[in-house]
Write a protein that binds this DNA or RNA. Structure first.
Lengths: 338, 338
DNA sequence: CTGAAAGCGCTTACAG
DNA sequence: CTGAAAGCGCTTACAG
């Protein structure tokens, strides 16, 4: 690569000291420099194609302007919109992000954290939390600011942006009950995740509130289509007369539909299925999946803003934000077959 | 955060000069230091919880172990698998990646490149190339190693991993011709992109090879569903009797299907539609889209390996790799209606 | 094999 | 308002 243009080159061209150039180019210090000089410096910088070496700046300021992001897997369609929300917010603040795919494996998470710490990340956005989470502990132990997204931990005193699952699950069950369903089952997510656990609990409570039996629940081991298929099969083995299944996320719901397909059952004619998250293109599927829309981009954006505030020291208090989800009725749900 | 442990702290503890610590901890320089000292240094480093400040190291070495990635938009389902291929490969080599979403806007691309250069990226993976591309020029002008993915530029002497579109388009047309289609149209991608241009050219050539008319082409302005819808409408205005449309990517194909829906036309009964790329979940859509599968993950992985080789100086020669795509027949294509 | 010094490109307290 | 100096935490030619 060619030799980079530095602040000294600009200084030489204008005929000032390089510290003056630094100040003239720094939005916060610019007002200490005469407008005429600022002007000349900006022009010279432009002409020479100068841009700052953030590495040097980071070293001096002991800040990296970098945040780390942990996700399970980019190719899980839940995450791209979240990441986009994170990236857009972070960039607007002059930061960049490093993301790692951990496949929900703890050693990959630990390894990623190590690498990120070596890069002096100023904070972490974590979408991979279990209810008891090693990474969260490490961050706390090392005073690394972090915000949890989507999934949270059981312990309190942490900051997180999650979905109001009581509300989300209730909207689904109310919808199904309104359609005359009584034997409603639940394919829950992994119980070590707050979403798996919380949605299952909300399911049971809400069914009880309707005076319906709320214990027809099978937990999937992972949030995958295949695990959804499996859990559905177990459910059907327990109750052949169920008429609706509430899945804890869309991938699990897709797995339920696959299982039904294999058995020659029709959605929603024989059994209604609902999802959760509203991943892309669900509206184009056959049948289009009724689901609970969660504000993915906004969750990423809001968590990031919170993290940036924490880093800036503006908002050191921990807080849990619960985003409101919204039921989207499509055609995987219909009146209960008599 | 706590004050960081530096190389000087380790040096003090062991009673050696900090440069000795630096060497003892560097895999490449370790053999110049007596094993006893290396041992003591490692132990002290461990005890103090030392880990290197990569920022300082980057500044000094003018290397960052970071590569930059330019994509249009993470939420476009074509990209997550490509990125995953890039990240997995890069991480295996001890590098990290910074990605930027540029929304196919040149100023965002330029800005992202500036930021990345400020972070001293050692190379770039570019998925956003136009046939004449400013970013590519900048990289060349500044001796930044780069590899193009999916889209390439007209000029040669660059490295790229792309799809063999002649093969891909031919497989689609052969399939349609085999089904008895004669009036086949093409919704091409933007002509400033190599995929838009190349697939349109392949379409025309291949139609001619079949002695069919190959000029029923409308170019979409962007690779979006909405632009696909628009282009389809223009096509239908030109020829009401067309029986099949080859779209230059899946999103455009989805747009074609939307347009047909609005007009009360059926896929594939009235018109067959094909896509390109094979993004996720196409097989679950209604109708399931016949498309050309491209090896997304592998393209990302292979391009990254090439880039790493270039950075290491192992493989300075430019090369174009053409990946073989594969036709996936689903049910958006059927025999031509008579 | 090890030390002392210089320097990567910035930022910022200290003078003036 | 501007300059001169020091230093962020490393790495590495140069000595010895």
């Amino acid at each position: 690569m060619k030799r980079k243009v530095t602040i000294r080159d600009v200084a030489e061209r204008v005929g000032v000291h390089h510290s003056t150039v630094s100040r003239a180019l720094s939005p916060g210090k610019r007002d200490k420099i005469s407008p005429a000089v600022v002007k000349k410096v900006e022009q010279a910088a432009e002409e020479l194609g100068y841009f700052p070496n953030i590495v040097a700046s980071s070293l001096k300021q002991n800040r990296s302007f970098t945040v780390g992001v942990l996700i399970p897997d980019l190719t899980n369609p839940l995450f791209p919109p979240i990441i986009r929300g994170i990236q857009d917010t972070v960039e607007a603040a002059g930061y960049t992000v490093i993301t790692a795919n951990t496949d929900d494996e703890q050693d990959k998470e630990l390894n990623a954290l190590r690498i990120m710490r070596g890069r002096a990340i100023e904070g972490m956005i974590i979408t991979t939390a279990r209810r008891e989470d090693r990474i969260v502990e490490e961050c706390i132990a090392n005073d690394i600011p972090f915000v949890l997204v989507n999934r949270t931990v059981d312990q309190d005193g942490v900051s997180a942006v999650v979905v109001d699952d009581d509300h989300g699950v209730r909207s689904v069950i109310d919808h199904l009950v309104g359609l005359g369903h009584v034997r409603i089952a639940h394919v829950s997510g992994p119980q070590h995740s707050s979403t798996g656990f919380g949605r299952a609990r909300a399911f049971a409570q809400c069914m009880n509130a309707h005076d319906l039996q709320g214990d027809l629940i099978e937990a999937a081991e992972k949030y995958t289509i295949e695990e959804g298929r499996r859990a559905f099969t177990r459910l059907l083995a327990r109750d052949k007369k169920l008429t609706a299944v509430v899945a804890a996320n869309d991938l699990l719901a897709l797995g339920c539909m696959d299982a039904m397909n294999e058995l020659g059952l029709l959605v929603p004619d024989n059994i209604s299925i609902t999802g959760y998250d509203d991943i892309q293109f669900l509206d184009r599927m056959s049948p289009a999946l009724t689901t609970v829309q969660v504000p993915k981009y906004e969750m990423g954006a809001q968590a990031t803003q919170k993290l940036l505030d924490m880093i800036a020291g503006d908002d050191p208090s921990a807080s849990i934000v619960r985003m409101q989800p919204r039921l989207i009725v499509r055609n995987s749900t219909a009146a209960a077959s008599p």
